[in-house]
Design a protein around this nucleic acid. Structure first.
Length: 933
RNA sequence: GGAAGGUUGGGCGAGCGGUUGAAGCCGGCUGAUUUAUAACCAGUUGUAGGUGUUAGAGGCACCUACCGAGGGUUCAAAUCCCUCACCUUCCUCCA
């Protein structure tokens, strides 16, 4: 007889091979067709809201591994909050305006751009953004990220654009929006502002000149030796054309300066460390150093401008270096970024007497109308005339050029719009709000706090096409800025209907409410501002455009979650726009993650060639593996990804999957409602398994709550391998296979396995969303249509039994020693399979008393054919435990023959002539099986 | 240059003054099994230097050092402090 057929062996159609890359798209389609997301919304509409507000990715290019990490993290959080009883609505968004798109459209247009209107360029930008939104949407969905994909928020939606203008208007009315000058890159040929990204650096030959700035203030009180001498501060520059705009000379606060007698009756002031080389250059071999001077002693002293009858102030700044020049930096706040910054500190004007075409304005004596680069030689000549020129040469150096026309660019101050950090207390209020927000990890608070504390006013204007205009008007007659509530409301309704495009398509009179009159001069004609807003303002007001306006959302959000770079980006701009207009931060907590790096911790870059694209991972391993990777990593630091790591994750995935499969295989004939065994009737080891499950549930629920997903990954995996595979399920095999199918012993095991699997599947659902659903389909008794409509398991105190668990932990300890002892016997070829063995263990009294009641069970717990326990006996040649004091284990070949059915050696085998190859236990089982109850 | 975070064994990660040469799991190796079988189970597994055993090699036993590097505090440090190196992010008309 083939006894194998009489066993209750596992049976399931659940495939061992996951085949994720093929099966996932089918699952996604099924979810979409069954409108799972909508069903979840409907089912949880009365629950408390949980809002994770999506930071909009930029609608350009394909998603990369970092975007995938971000979106999967969000998805795990949303799903887990949803399953813990909240209503977690997720509205994804995209950032659509901005330079990169405009830049790419520019590139596609090439020379044709000149013939195309701004409105037309905007249309092309819009369709460019739309294209990539569609691409990215599909890529995000493929990751298993669930949300309102058919109704995302786009910063270029008409209503969103209207909101941007309105929010900006609030700053204008409140008085913190103001106009001031700031130097920017400017191409004189294209007559346009340039971004850093539009600059190409190339070698250029420039004049290099040293110029005297006669000291006006008298130093001789402090340094008597200078009394009666002609003292000058000597500066160095490679852009003589900026000298007309000079307002200051900057020294480093920590450098030593020297007053040097040139030997020609003149005294130069320059950095002491550079005296030697400079004097050599100037050909003053007979110089003498008259005195050392501290930079602080020169601060706020006055020099004379070398060309004009005005002063130049001596100031201090950290950007001064000793690498070249004199350690005294010619400073024109209208023509340099650092000059501008330091100029602000000293209250200097942003003087920039150069027009759009790069020619000097009428402000500039001697050189009016001259193109600045052409003026260089005239200025040098003039300096020579006045005697201010110390030395002149030519040098080659790297200089910025326009990406389009390849001409050298200049730095030029132009009027810009700013939001003041301090006029209306924005900085202070923001800092207060930072302290009310929960920052995870904690250092995020300090990071953004320092940034807000130290940042300059926010320059919100850009001279660009693809964005939302700053909707202010200027009186054509008196030039006064015109903005009020009526205009804001009017523009809002126009934008809502036509988008911001209307600003560029229509004439001013069509954009203003009727009968608008300049309040200053009574004039009725206006011009409009052409600058657009910084795109950070666009995404920064998403709380107003999305959270506040959508009925299914709320303000403020519970959580913002982005990479740590967004402390300077979106967290920052969102905070300022919300505090400025509503007095409060738009988020209750902010979570940040690190960046994805390669196996060696290096960032991913095209040039190094170490990029791992999400698509590659998905095609090869499946999105599920990517999700597992996200969950397994501690995302607060930078996280690594490599083929090796992914392979390993595939292994762990397979183990989890297979553990579930094994359980399902053993539940093929189990109907929970009908066959379940009540807790009280269960075997102790089954109750122990339930106890362990409660611990797992408690641990994972806490981890979900704390966003510590790697804890869940490890807990879940260890549970599957250690608690289940290696212990509980391994022991259970005998009971499941050989007991009568409907016996209480087997039903008890099945009951527990069912509970286990049910919990494990729910608990993995936020992470392994595909697999959880797949398993769910193969389980008996499904209450909800989808696992994602169910909830996370909750721990049941009645299933926790500490004293029982304590006893079993001791037994487990002994079991570990027994397997070691068997291994020793196996190496001696005494036994092969553990069922070939019979063990006798000797233990100390207290342990003996604890284990003795379980003596009958030891056989199955140890998975041997016989087990007995004795008190404090000495065995000859037994295995003595190192870990458990007084424990020694004797392993012998089991007595009796091996039962063909259950493989246990038993003396009863062969005693029955009808069934000579099986044991009495199996005989009883077969009898019971034949005529149940 | 400035600001912030980080660096634990082949991998993921515990540990945050002593019980830690360093949990657990994975991977590797060896074995067992063929009733989860492209699965499951058990055992084993860091590197370097030294000493002993040995004819020598291997093996075994013991000692020392190593948690980015170096120094310090302490009876005691992966854990606290300092310096340095490296990695990542930010410093914006880049999202």
């Amino acid at each position: 007889m083939d006894y194998k057929k009489t066993l209750n062996l596992p049976s399931t159609k659940f495939p061992m091979k996951a085949n994720l890359s093929k099966r996932e798209p089918e699952q996604l389609k099924e979810w979409e067709e069954s409108r799972l997301y909508d069903n979840i919304r409907e089912a949880s509409k009365d629950r408390e809201l949980f809002i994770l507000h999506d930071g909009p990715p930029y609608a350009n290019g394909h998603i990369h591994i970092g975007t995938a990490l971000n979106k999967i993290l969000k998805d795990i959080i949303i799903r887990s909050r949803q399953m813990s009883g909240l209503n977690a609505v997720y509205v994804p968004g995209w950032d659509c305006h901005g330079l990169p798109i405009e830049h790419n459209v520019d590139k596609e247009l090439g020379a044709r751009k000149k013939d195309i209107s701004q409105a037309e360029i905007r249309r092309l930008c819009r369709s460019y953004a739309e294209k990539f939104i569609d691409i990215q949407r599909e890529e995000f969905k493929r990751l298993g990220v669930m949300g309102e994909w058919e109704n995302p928020y786009l910063t270029m939606n008409y209503k969103y654009e209207a909101t941007i203008a309105k929010e900006c208007g609030k700053f204008a009315l409140e008085g913190s929006l103001f106009r001031s000058k700031k130097p920017i890159y400017w191409c004189c040929r294209c007559k346009t502002a340039l971004a850093e990204a539009e600059i190409e650096y190339g070698d250029e030959s420039s004049p290099s000149v040293y110029v005297k700035f006669p000291l006006e203030d008298d130093l001789s009180k402090k340094i008597p030796v200078l009394s009666g001498k002609k003292v000058s501060v000597v500066i160095w520059t490679t852009t003589p054309w900026t000298i007309p705009a000079n307002l200051a000379v900057c020294l480093h606060p920590d450098f030593k300066y020297a007053a040097v007698d040139t030997g020609n009756g003149e005294v130069f002031i320059l950095a002491k460390d550079l005296v030697e080389t400079c004097m050599k250059t100037f050909d003053h071999p007979n110089f003498t150093i008259l005195a050392d001077i501290k930079a602080q002693d020169l601060e706020r002293k006055q020099c004379m401008h070398p060309l004009y009858d005005r002063k130049s102030l001596i100031i201090l700044g950290g950007h001064v270096t000793l690498e070249a020049g004199t350690g005294c930096v010619h400073t024109a706040p209208g023509h340099g970024a650092e000059d501008y910054e330091v100029g602000l500190l000293y209250g200097l004007d942003t003087y920039s007497p150069v027009n759009d075409t790069g020619c000097f304005t009428g402000d500039v004596d001697f050189f009016e109308g001259k193109f600045v680069f052409d003026a260089d030689k005239d200025i040098v000549a003039k300096l020579k005339d006045t005697g201010a020129l110390v030395y002149e040469e030519k040098i080659k150096h790297s200089y910025p050029h326009c990406w389009r026309c390849k001409k050298p660019v200049i730095f030029r101050a132009t009027p810009q719009w700013f939001i003041s950090m301090d006029k209306t207390g924005l900085r202070k209020k923001s800092l207060d709000e930072i302290n009310r927000v929960e920052w995870i990890p904690k250092w995020g608070r300090d990071r953004i706090y320092t940034m807000i504390e130290n940042r300059p006013d926010w320059c919100v204007s850009r001279q660009r096409a693809w964005g939302v205009p700053i909707t202010v008007f200027y009186c054509e007659k008196c030039g006064a800025v015109h903005i009020n509530q009526e205009i804001i409301d009017h523009v809002y309704s126009l934008f809502e209907k036509h988008g911001a495009d209307i600003w560029f398509e229509r004439e001013v009179k069509d954009l203003l409410p009727e009968n608008t009159v300049c309040q200053k001069c009574g004039n009725k004609t206006f011009t409009k501002e052409n600058d657009i807003l910084d795109v950070w303002f666009d995404s920064g007001v998403s709380h107003a455009a999305v959270l506040e306006q959508r009925l299914n959302l709320k303000w403020p959000a519970d959580l913002y979650l982005e990479g740590s770079d967004q402390h300077r980006g979106w967290f920052h701009s969102s905070l300022l726009t919300a505090v400025g207009t509503r007095g409060r931060a738009p988020y209750k907590s902010v979570l940040t993650h690190g960046f994805v790096v390669d196996a060696n911790g290096k960032k991913m870059s095209k040039s190094i060639g170490n990029i791992i694209a999400p698509k590659k991972v998905i095609d090869r391993y499946g999105a599920e593996i990517l999700r597992l990777w996200v969950a397994a990593s501690d995302y607060r630091d930078d996280i690594r990804i490599s083929d090796k790591i992914l392979k390993q994750l595939t292994d762990t995935y397979r183990r989890i999957r297979n553990t579930c499969r094994f359980i399902m295989g053993n539940l093929y004939d189990f109907e929970p409602l009908k066959d379940s065994v009540p807790y009280e009737a269960m075997q102790e080891i089954d109750r122990f398994a339930l106890h362990k499950l409660q611990l797992l549930i408690e641990k994972t629920n806490k981890a979900y709550n704390d966003f510590e997903f790697h804890v869940i990954y490890h807990a879940l995996y260890n549970y599957c391998t250690v608690d289940l595979s290696a212990f509980y399920l391994d022991i259970l095999k005998d009971r499941l296979y050989t007991s009568p199918a409907k016996s209480e012993a087997r039903r008890s095991a099945q009951t527990v396995m069912y509970i286990l699997l049910d919990a494990v599947v729910r608990l993995m659902a936020p992470i392994l969303s595909f697999t959880a659903e797949e398993i769910r389909r193969f389980m008996p008794e499904r209450k909800e249509k989808s696992i994602h409509l169910s909830s996370l398991p909750t721990a049941r105190d009645v299933w926790k039994d500490e004293s029982l668990a304590g006893r079993w932990e001791r037994i487990l300890e002994v079991r570990g020693e027994v397997t070691k002892a068997i291994e020793v016997a196996r190496n001696k070829k005494l036994v092969g399979h553990s069922l070939d063995a019979a063990v006798t263990i000797s233990v100390k009294k207290d342990l003996y008393d604890l284990i003795c009641p379980y003596e009958d069970e030891l056989r199955s717990v140890f998975i041997v054919s016989g087990a007995s326990i004795v008190k404090e006996e000495k065995f000859a040649d037994a295995y003595a435990s190192d870990d458990v004091e007084g424990l020694s284990i004797m392993v012998e070949p089991a007595a009796g023959d091996k039962c063909e059915r259950c493989w246990i050696h038993d003396v009863s085998v062969g005693t029955d002539s009808e069934q000579p190859t099986i044991c009495n236990r199996c005989k009883d089982a077969l009898k019971f099986q034949a005529e149940p109850k």
